[in-house]
């Protein structure tokens, strides 16, 4: 899974497979982080709760 595990080889198989994995994990991680940070920001701005209805 990581280049420091001893069976790791810098070959096409590892690059494609692990590349795809870390790419997907990266998107999910960044997307989730964005949502959480923006939610904190919005909350501090006073959006949401009982006053913030009306979106969909």
């Amino acid at each position: 899974m990581f280049p420091f595990s001893f069976e790791w080889v810098w070959d096409m198989g590892h690059m494609v497979f692990m590349g795809g994995l870390w790419y997907a994990l990266g998107i999910l991680g960044m997307g989730l982080t964005f949502c959480i940070i923006k939610a904190v920001y919005d909350t501090v701005q006073g959006k949401g709760g009982d006053h913030g209805h009306g979106h969909h």
Binding site: C35, G46, K47, G48, G49
Partner: peptide
């Protein structure tokens, strides 16, 4: 949903759900 933070989080997650769905489709295919 009455709690502002969770309300905002839901709203934001809905906002970029297409991104998650696309990643999900990619992973599912494999």
């Amino acid at each position: 949903d009455r709690l502002p933070f969770f309300h905002n989080l839901t709203h934001n997650m809905h906002g970029i759900m297409a991104l998650f769905a696309a990643t999900g489709a990619f992973l599912s295919f494999f």
